[in-house]
Amino acid sequence: MNTTIETILNHRSVRAFTEEAVPQADVEIIVEAAQAASTSSFLQAYSIIGITDQEKKKNLAVLAGSQSYVVENGYFFVFCADLYRLEQAAEQHNTNILQTTESTEAYMISLIDAALAAQNAAIAAESMGLGICYIGGIRNNLKQVCELLQTPERVLPLFGMAVGYPKQIEEQKPRLPKELIFHENYYKNDKGNIKEELQRYDQLIADYYLNRTNGKKEMTWTKQVSNTLERSKRLYLNEFVKDRGFLN
C-alpha cells in the first residue's frame, strides 16, 4: 500500500485544532491540488474563497450553527459552484450561454466540479499532516453567507472546509460494508441481504459509539440516519438556488 492510499484510508473529520496557522505556502499547495482535480469539459465551474478575516469566520460560524471549529482552525475555505465566470468568458466572444448556465446539467457540473476539487484539497491537506472537516452548515443561511462573501449571481457557496493542525483525533468511524456500497454490472437490490448487512453494521456502529462515549451513547446507524432524515431541513434551497440564477 502506498502513502497516498494510506492517507485516504486514514481519513477522519477533525473538529479540534491547535492555534497554529497553516502557512501560506501550504495553503497555495492545497489550492493547486484542488485545481488539479478532474473537471467536466474543462469548464472548471467552481471557485474557492479562503477566509482569513477572523470576524468573517466568526460570522460564518454563527450562520453555520455556532460550530466553534469554523473559527478555531488554521485556515478556512469555502467551495462554491461558479457559472458566473463562464458567462464572463462567453461575453468575450459575444456568445449567449444563458440557456446552458440555467440548465440542470450545468448546475450538476458545477456541484460535481466543486466536490472533486474539495476532495483533492482534503487529501492534499491530510498528506501534509493537517486535519480537515467539511462544513455543510453554511447552507443553513445561504442568503447571509452570499452577502458576507459578496458572491455574484450564479456563484453559490456549497460547503466550507476547516483545515488545521489536529489538537485531538477521534477514532475512525467504520464505514458501510463494501457489499452495500459496491455493485458489479447491475444494482443488487436483494432486500433480504440489505437488511442482514444493515443489522450487522448497526451492531458495529452501536459498539463504536458505546466505546467512544464510555457507554453514554447508544445509537445504531439506521436509527441515526432515520432520525436525521425524518426532520426535513433547508427546504428554502430550491427557491434560493433558482434566485441565484441556477436551475431556471
Rank of each mutant, 00 (worst) to 15 (best):
N211I: 07
I30D: 07
Q92R: 10
N193A: 12
A89K: 14
N227M: 12
A21E: 04
K57C: 05
R15W: 09
N96S: 10
F42A: 12
S38W: 13
L111D: 03
L86C: 06
K217Q: 08
N227C: 11
T3F: 12
T222S: 13
E239K: 12
E230F: 13
E218K: 10
A121R: 04
N193R: 11
T220A: 06
T52M: 05
Q199M: 15
Q203N: 10
L247S: 03
I51Y: 00
E55T: 13
L149A: 00
S38C: 15
A106T: 00
I112Y: 10
L176G: 03
T39K: 09
Y75S: 08
M1I: 13
P23R: 02
A122L: 15
I5R: 12
Q144T: 06
T100R: 14
Y165L: 06
Y208R: 00
G65H: 06
E102K: 02
L142C: 02
D26R: 08
E126S: 09
A117E: 06
F246Q: 01
N2K: 13
Q150E: 11
Y69D: 06
F159M: 08
A21W: 00
Q199W: 11
G215N: 04
V78C: 01
A90E: 06
M219R: 07
M108Y: 11
G131V: 05
A115W: 07
L43D: 04
A122T: 08
A21G: 01
F17I: 09
D113P: 01
N185G: 02
A45P: 00
G137N: 13
I30E: 07
N94L: 15
L176V: 01
L210E: 13
E87V: 03
E196Q: 10
S66M: 09
Q67E: 12
L142G: 05
E196S: 13
L210M: 12
N2S: 11
Q119V: 07
D202K: 05
Q35D: 12
R139K: 11
V71P: 01
A124K: 02
S232G: 15
I138F: 02
A64Y: 00
I194N: 12
S110R: 07
T104N: 14
T3P: 07
P166A: 10
A115H: 04
L247H: 03
I169G: 02
Q168Y: 09
D82V: 02
N141T: 03
E230S: 15
A114W: 00
L130A: 05
A37H: 09
L111K: 08
L60E: 02
Y84Q: 06
V27Q: 14
Y46L: 04
N73Q: 05
D82K: 05
P174G: 04
S127G: 07
I194W: 15
A121C: 08
M161N: 02
N189L: 08
V163Q: 01
G137D: 12
L130M: 07
A121N: 05
E147K: 07
I8C: 10
Y165T: 11
L156W: 03
F77G: 02
V145C: 00
Q199L: 14
L247K: 11
L210Q: 10
K58A: 13
L237E: 11
E184H: 10
R231L: 11
L235H: 12
E87G: 01
E197Y: 11
K56I: 05
A61D: 00
P157R: 01
E32F: 07
I112P: 06
T52Q: 14
E19W: 08
Y186V: 08
